[in-house]
Amino acid sequence: MHSARERVEHERWLAEIARIGDGLDLSPEAISCAEDLFLADVPAADRSKRVAAAASLYAGGLIAGDGRSQGEVADAADVSRLSIQQRWKAVVERAGLEAPGW
């Protein structure tokens, strides 16, 4: 669980996650999971936050059983598919979960 202060501090990115998730027609559970994953390890550099948000959306969809392809998420988030591919497992692991080995 994340504090209200963290949510307020990163409100812009949480809104962006929700907007992209809605555009992908992700379930509320997947979007909520993505928000939690993002807040578990917010990058310091602003330029890295868009990729972290996209990777969190991809991973949140997988965890919630409502996954989309890396390409779909990348297109919706305006990042490269390779960026998501390189980042999503680390996002999952930093949240204390075990990433699948496939």
Rank of each mutant, 00 (worst) to 15 (best):
M1R: 05
H2L: 09
H2C: 09
R5P: 00
R5K: 11
E6N: 15
E9Y: 00
E9K: 13
H10Y: 15
W13Y: 11
L14H: 03
L14K: 03
E16W: 15
I17R: 01
I17K: 03
I17C: 10
A18M: 06
A18F: 04
D22T: 04
D22R: 12
G23Y: 03
D25A: 12
L26N: 01
L26C: 00
L26W: 02
P28Y: 10
A30S: 12
I31Q: 06
C33W: 03
D36W: 06
D36T: 10
L37H: 08
L39Q: 09
V42E: 07
A45Y: 06
D46T: 12
R47C: 11
R47Y: 14
S48E: 11
K49I: 00
R50Q: 13
V51H: 01
V51N: 02
V51Q: 11
A52C: 07
A54S: 13
A55F: 07
Y58R: 06
A59G: 06
A59K: 01
G60Q: 13
G61S: 05
G65S: 10
D66I: 02
D66E: 05
G67W: 14
R68A: 14
S69N: 11
G71A: 05
E72S: 15
V73P: 05
V73S: 04
A74C: 01
A74M: 02
D75K: 13
S80C: 00
R81S: 12
S83R: 06
S83W: 00
I84P: 08
Q85V: 00
Q86V: 09
R87Y: 10
R87N: 11
K89G: 05
V92P: 09
V92C: 01
E93D: 00
E93K: 10
R94G: 08
G96L: 01
E98Q: 13
A99D: 04
G101K: 15
G101H: 09
W102N: 13
